[in-house]
Amino acid sequence: MNQTNKLLVDIDNLHKSYSNKQIETKALQGVSLAIYQGEFVAITGPSGCGKSTLLSIMGLMDSATSGHYTVAGVDTKDLKVDQKTMIRNKHIGFVFQSFNLIDEMTVFDNIALILEHRKTPKAEIKQRVEEVLSQVDMLPRQHYRPNQLSGGQQQRIAIARALVGNPDLILVDEPTGNLDTINGDKVMALLEKLNKDGATIVMVTHDTRYVRCASRQIQLLDGEIITEKQLEGVA
């Protein structure tokens, strides 16, 4: 990646530990990482290595025990809950492994949520939601409810929701974990396309088949980065 691009994520010596009565689990141990605009980073590693914890901290849905994390130029150390929420709303899009769509809402409403929380005008919301639905090829399903869709379709809706706010950074947690191979391939192709269109993506996966879609691979083990390499995306 061209390092002249804007620095989007700057992680320095990040530690995270969980304490449960007498047992202390160290999830991250001194992780340092820089991600530039337009990158597609795949974070890989075995189960329990800390990759999801790292992604949660990057998504401001968890806090580090120590270390520094700056996203889109904002130091997140002393941010209050609502300030983090605002940054999530404006700068970060998150795609969850289990989709996390609200069953009581239609596909359209699920995607529109981010813009509604930004108090975007209705007409603009409609235009933008339809745009991202077209992008993920789900426009005809906009009035469906999530539980009326297949897993692959739900994941595409989750991606559309992450895209709708034009975030600087898209975080993707095990995007194919709950999908069969065909749907997994389709979702990965979509992410690759989005990256080619300019989106910065950080993806956590344990499926080595899809690592090649990324431009950089970071391997974690026991909460530490063990390897980091540039890849040539193939899709």
Partner: peptide, 16 residues
């Protein structure tokens, strides 16, 4: 709870 957590994760403020 999950629904609320989703809303918060996509940028809903606590007061909203």
């Amino acid at each position: 709870n999950k629904e609320f957590a989703i809303q918060l994760s996509v940028g809903a403020s606590q007061w909203r």
